[in-house]
């Protein structure tokens, strides 16, 4: 079996995302890959990871095979430490209790801004997307990991609309806008792992996923990419990671 056949694109997305988390952190996770990846981290390397959901859950411990269909469903609360109101769990971000926010993305740009509101001109949109949910709150108030599909139309130079702010126009523009804390930290796709330049705040490739070339990443991106001086290749998913992931999501709700 070749390396690429061992796992699907959404599986490597979940596994590489889980690797970004550290034991003991407090992570605010969105639905889909973030919830799954945070749970995978908790069941592998990070038993002391505290997972928050916007429905009001503190210290989630999601049951294998019973993944919730949203972060506002009763399944999110099973064996959790606490249930709060949803405004109050979001306020934990504002007070600074949360180390990292973790969400998916529909469209991202070179400064890590995310759009989940409008495709086209917002005044006469081609497509009205679902909107921010807690995404704007999370990305405004903490350090972000974004897990998303890598397509040219999703990786654009400038998003049509900033729903969830990254580094806005780069440089100090995020801080100047009234957001002194947090910002984009990592973007994970099925092709690569990205970080952001400390000064320009522009996205750059930190690592290529196994079997993926520089050209493949560039060809699927709508703007010119920088590659880190220390560019390396990520180690492939282990059997243990894959087995744990498939045990958590046997119905492939989030890993189709």
């Amino acid at each position: 079996m070749t390396e690429a056949q061992r796992y699907t694109a959404s599986e490597i997305l979940a596994i590489l995302s889980a690797r970004q988390l550290q034991d003991g952190q407090v992570v605010f996770a969105g639905i889909g890959t973030p919830l799954l990846a945070a749970t995978l981290a908790q069941r592998t390397r990070c038993p002391a990871l505290t997972i928050l959901f916007e429905g009001g859950v503190v210290g989630a411990f999601v049951e294998p095979g019973k993944l919730p269909p949203s972060t506002n469903d009763q399944r999110c609360t099973k064996r959790a430490n606490m249930v709060l109101g949803s405004a109050d769990v979001l306020l934990l971000l504002q007070r600074g209790y949360v180390d990292v926010g973790f969400m998916g993305g529909a469209q991202i740009d070179q400064f890590g801004n995310l759009n989940s509101s409008f495709i086209g001109d917002p005044a006469k949109p081609k497509t009205r997307l679902p909107g921010t949910g807690g995404g704007n709150d999370i990305s405004s108030l903490t350090n972000m990991i974004v897990a998303m599909k890598h397509e040219k139309r999703r990786f654009v130079e400038k998003v049509d609309f900033i729903t969830s702010p990254g580094f806005i126009r780069g440089g100090t523009s995020r801080r100047d806008s009234g957001l002194p804390s947090g910002g984009m930290w990592r973007v994970i796709t099925e092709l690569a792992v990205f970080g952001f330049d400390d000064r320009t705040r522009r996205i750059k490739v930190l690592a290529l996923n196994p079997g993926v070339s520089r050209e493949e990443v560039q060809d699927n991106t709508g703007f010119r990419l920088d590659f880190d001086e220390m560019l390396h290749v990520t180690s492939p998913p282990t059997d243990h990671e894959l087995e744990t992931l498939r045990m958590l999501d046997p119905d492939r709700l989030f890993t189709a």
Binding site: S117, N136, S140, L141, I162, T163, S164, S173, S177, L179
Partner: peptide
């Protein structure tokens, strides 16, 4: 609140005041 600042959501919401 400290959310929504810097985003385009706030530009669409004249009801909110910075």
């Amino acid at each position: 609140t400290r959310a929504m600042l810097g985003s385009d959501i706030v530009g669409q919401r004249p009801e909110a005041k910075q």
